[in-house]
Design a protein around this nucleic acid. Sequence first.
DNA 1: TCAAGATAGATTGTAGACAATATGCGGGTG
DNA 2: CACCCGCATATTGTCTACAATCTATCTTGA
Lengths: 227, 227
Amino acid sequence: MAASNRQEIRTLAEQVFAQLQDDIVLGVLKPGTRLGEAELASRYGVSRGPLREAIRRLESRKLLQREPHVGARVASLTTDDLVEIYRVREALEGMAARLAAQHMTESEVQGLHDVLSQHEQQQDIKEDTAYFQREGDLDFHYRIIQGSHNQTLIDLLIGELYHLVRMYRYQFSAVTNRPQKALAEHRRIVEAIESGDGDLAEMLMRRHISRARENIELQTQNDSTNT
Amino acid sequence: MAASNRQEIRTLAEQVFAQLQDDIVLGVLKPGTRLGEAELASRYGVSRGPLREAIRRLESRKLLQREPHVGARVASLTTDDLVEIYRVREALEGMAARLAAQHMTESEVQGLHDVLSQHEQQQDIKEDTAYFQREGDLDFHYRIIQGSHNQTLIDLLIGELYHLVRMYRYQFSAVTNRPQKALAEHRRIVEAIESGDGDLAEMLMRRHISRARENIELQTQNDSTNT
DNA sequence: TCAAGATAGATTGTAGACAATATGCGGGTG
DNA sequence: CACCCGCATATTGTCTACAATCTATCTTGA
């Protein structure tokens, strides 16, 4: 539902790539797991050729780590890695918000409002906050990124970086402990985009992501002191 | 010399990957060229296995475009693509400059000064401005990116984006028509980094790259009106 | 002239074999 | 007892050959 297989898949190598990626992101294959080629080949019902091509592509997306003559392992993200990623997100999504304020069409802005009101309802019904905190939050960010109409930016964020963010969320069942504030920030970002204020949109988006990063850093401190 | 093969290369697939990448970036293989698998395999003296893995990795770096059952072509960059890339550079290198101001070591700052004075001398000797306008300029940017000490950021910029920038420069023999101003901007960026002013460093870097982008956009307009 | 089918060419997928290398175990030595 | 060296094993890396599939072109017929 969220955003997994965007384009039509035709070759076996691409199928294996998509399946293996999902299995890694969703946690079916746990971080650190050794991935033997023979084992994977039989698991997905293909030969080693297409499998190795899929592995190469997943390696360049940092979803698995490879070492020559040793093999591949499912990437295991540390919190430091995630903090690094959030710095990059801050820069790229800030730019995306700025460009979205300039280039978004009316229907795209309307779509933002739809997502927003959807989240507001789910906030009232407090039981299913998981949606907002997982893929729902990402839907909002996806739309703004797409709204930048900058294909390079879109590919970098959605094609490469976001899989790692999603993997982390599934790995640690990560939830934001400030859903109301986050939703309020989303609202103000949409207002800035709607009024075409690129400067403000970028600033608000950067703050929004920066706070999420600080939240991660804080939780890490608590974890280490409690342990 | 500049920055081509950073890590030790052990497997054939990695060798082919590095060679093919260089051949594309440096223009040995011209944009749009069809790359038959059999032809490439004999060209580099390997079989199709390692070759196909190299092709997959180059595809995810956007150095070549592939179509299933048709084949691969050397990517041909349009000016619009480059403008998109410069928007991303503005965001990412702005962040890199901010982080560099916070995290660069003394010796790294010294290295920046060295590059700077090197460029100043080459400016006086006006004959060989090509160095500054090509790899020399990139050296400066590379150092600041490395100075961010954010490996995710470094990988994205140097590992993925910069090959495209370099390819474009070789493709069009692109030169900046404002070398003095660019050098002055470099100087002020180093000052901001040295004084630990992350806000200023980011702002100056963003302006610097933004002006380079405007320069590209202007040249494109002239080209189209003259043609 | 246009459209549908056949053919040629290429790429993609598969299988099997061998070479190259890392890992882990066991024995020997200080 | 600890450490180092060498060997066996398993896995990855590579190559060859062939089958399957798709694309594009050419031919043929209406």
